[in-house]
Write a protein that binds this DNA or RNA. Structure first.
Lengths: 120, 120
DNA sequence: CTAAACCCTGACATCTGTGGCAGAGTCAAG
DNA sequence: CTTGACTCTGCCACAGATGTCAGGGTTTAG
C-alpha cells in the first residue's frame, strides 16, 4: 500500500509517517516513481509507534528497538540473537519503570482523593 | 528553603524549577529580596512533577492537577469538593489509559521475544 | 571591603514531533 | 489532454521542556 492508505488505516498523518520513515522506524520500499510502498505489517508498526509515543518514549528510543521488528527474521539473522534479546530486555525494563512510576502516581492520587472532605 | 537547595534535593535543575514555578505548578513565596522560598513539601511536589513528566504528561496537564495539591486544605475549601474529586478522577483515568498502553506494549514485546530463535 | 556563591529576570538557543506550504512529478478518469 | 487526487522533497513554523547567557542584585566568608 502507499502512504495515504497507511495513514487512513492508522489515523496517523502522512507527514508523521514520512517522519518515522525518515528516521528509519519503518521499512519502506520504493516504487519506480519513488512512491513509498508499505506492507500490511506496517499498520501494526505505526500503531505500536503511537503506543510507544503515548507513554513518553521518543522516536529515537523507539528506533533502538526498531531492528527487532524490521522483518522478524531478516535482522535476527544478521544480528546476534542475544543482542536482539537484549534490545527487548532493555525496552521491557524501561516499560516496567514506567509502569512503576504510574502505579506510584496512581497511588498518590488515590491517597489524596481519600483525604478529601468526602463530598457525598 | 531557596531554589538552589530544592534543586539539590530533587536533582532537578534550577532552570526547570523556575519554569515550573512560572507556570504555577509550585507555590513559592518570596523573600524581601525577591528570592523564591519553598517549603519541604515542594521537594515532594517536584518529584511528583518529574514522575508525571516521565510518563508522558505535559506541564500544562500537570498544572490542571495543581489546584489539588496546593495546600491540601486551602483549595478544597474554595473549590467544590466534587470538582476537585473530578480533577483526580480525570488524572487517574488518564493514568489508567497509560497503564493499559504500557501493558499492551509489554505484552507485544514479550510475544516478539518469545518468537526469537532462542539463543541459548 | 571584596570575592565567591547565589539569586533575579529576560531573551535567545536547542531538541522533538508535527503541521503547513511550495514546487514538481504521477496517475486515473473524463 | 486536462483535471483532481496523490505523491515526492525541502524548508520554515510552532509548542514544550530545558539549556545558556547577559546584566544585575544579595549574601556570606575572609
Amino acid at each position: 500500500m502507499r502512504i495515504g492508505e497507511l495513514s487512513r488505516l492508522t489515523g496517523v498523518s502522512v507527514r508523521a509517517i514520512r517522519h518515522y520513515d525518515g528516521l528509519g522506524l519503518l521499512i519502506s520500499r520504493r516504487e519506480d516513481n519513488r512512491y513509498r510502498v508499505f506492507g500490511p505489517d506496517d499498520v501494526e508498526r505505526v500503531r505500536l509507534i503511537q503506543l510507544f509515543l503515548s507513554v513518553g518514549f521518543r522516536l529515537e528510543e523507539i528506533r533502538e528497538y526498531g531492528p527487532c521488528w524490521q522483518g522478524d527474521a531478516s535482522v535476527t539473522q544478521t544480528i546476534p540473537a542475544d543482542q536482539v534479546a537484549a534490545f527487548y530486555g532493555r525496552k521491557v525494563a524501561q516499560i516496567d519503570r514506567q509502569l512503576a512510576a504510574l502505579h506510584t502516581l496512581r497511588t498518590q492520587l488515590k491517597e489524596q482523593m481519600d483525604r478529601l472532605p468526602n463530598a457525598d
